Amino acid sequence: MTLDIHGIIPPLVSPFTADEQPDLDALRAEVRYHLDLGAHGLCVTGSTGDGQMLSLEDSVAIARTAVEETKGQVPVIAGIIQDSTKEVIRYGKAIAETGVDALQVTPVHYLFQPDEDTTVEYYRRIADETGLPIVIYNVIPYALIPATTVARVMNEIPSVIGVKQSGGNIHQLADLLHMNPEGGKVFTAVDDLLFPSYLMGAEGAISATLTVVPELCLAQWDAVQRGDLETAKELHNKQLPVWRAIDGPNMTARIKVALELQGRNGGTSLSPLTPVSDAERETLRAALVAADVKLAS
């Protein structure tokens, strides 16, 4: 199944109103913001979008809004974070009707980790029954899919077109890039190591830092593509403190504050996420200032 995904694909936040309803106007503004900067694709309802907390109805509304606002300019990928094949397929079929280009799917992970054959069959069923290209979202630290299994899934299932390697595991990413699976592309979500990920051969990134400081991430990607490694390294050193500031408990709440500080509307956070403290807010502000990111007056 052919779908050209590459480069900088920000995973958007899911803005919510004070009564915990999707704020679709705020989402549209974020979609336009990233499109205007030149993002190569967009991802919704992933971890940065609180995908694990979303109802099917909210997931569909967010995906549909992103597709409508994007108007086919770039691919739109929708995340599904559920814990049974049946639920993933139920979400996937409903989201497919919105016109998204692909699904980003975590392995099941509550209390156990399936073996290799079960994992292969899991992704095969999802691809077959939803009819959409699939990106493996390899993020769950205690249920990480081994690199050999990821490569097998991509090589055996044509509709599995890539993997987003997350969980802070540069070693797993290195193994995947070394294996160079023929069936799909390897994307990095190791936020503090985006620069070396590109040098090792990652074909793009789908990670939270891209959403918070997309200008820096797009500039870094472009610098690597033209071989300007000194500029790419300088941008790495600007991005790193921003990642350190957003990484931690209640990360999506921190990300929304980082957007607010820039004059962007990420909406409120869903319960039971803890509100960001004054000290955390100042840490975020200082990191953005140090990165030369323009803040709202």
Rank of each mutant, 00 (worst) to 15 (best):
I157D: 07
K185T: 15
E87Y: 10
N155A: 07
Q262N: 12
L240D: 11
I140K: 10
G167M: 11
P75E: 06
M1H: 14
R285I: 03
I246K: 11
V60K: 07
K185R: 15
A174D: 14
P275F: 00
V135G: 03
K86P: 03
H40L: 08
V120R: 09
A26Q: 06
T70N: 10
T252D: 11
H34Q: 04
P114F: 11
P10D: 05
K185D: 13
G72S: 01
V293G: 12
P133Y: 05
A147D: 07
L35F: 10
T119A: 01
K185V: 14
N169S: 04
P133K: 06
M1F: 13
D278Y: 09
T48D: 06
H109Y: 14
V139D: 01
S55G: 04
G38M: 06
I206T: 04
L176D: 00
M251N: 03
E230A: 15
P241R: 12
E215P: 10
H171Q: 06
F16K: 01
Y110R: 08
T70P: 08
S59Q: 07
M200W: 07
R281F: 14
I89Y: 03
D278H: 10
Y110W: 10
E30V: 04
L284K: 01
T231R: 15
F112H: 08
T17D: 08
P214D: 05
H6Y: 12
D4L: 13
T130M: 05
S166Q: 02
N169T: 00
D83P: 00
A290Y: 10
A219T: 14
L240S: 12
G183W: 03
Q220R: 11
A296E: 11
A147I: 02
G266N: 08
D228A: 10
D83S: 02
V163P: 03
V293A: 12
Y123V: 02
A61E: 06
T149Q: 05
I77G: 11
L273A: 14
V44Q: 01
K294P: 10
Q52R: 13
V60H: 09
T209P: 15
P181C: 01
L288C: 05
V153E: 03
D222H: 09
P10H: 06
L288H: 06
D228R: 09
Y142P: 05
A219E: 15
A208E: 05
S277P: 00
I5E: 04
N237G: 11
L144A: 13
P114Q: 09
G92D: 02
S269T: 12
D175E: 14
I136L: 00
A151Q: 08
G167I: 06
I157S: 08
D222M: 06
V242A: 05
R28S: 15
I246G: 11
Q262R: 15
N237M: 14
I140H: 09
W221N: 07
I170A: 12
I77L: 14
C217V: 09
L284G: 04
T65E: 05
R32D: 10
L111W: 06
T209H: 14
R124V: 10
G267I: 02
S14H: 02
V289M: 08
A127Q: 05
R226Q: 08
S197N: 08
P158L: 07
T65Y: 01
A39Q: 07
L284Q: 03
I89L: 03
P275T: 00
V213S: 15
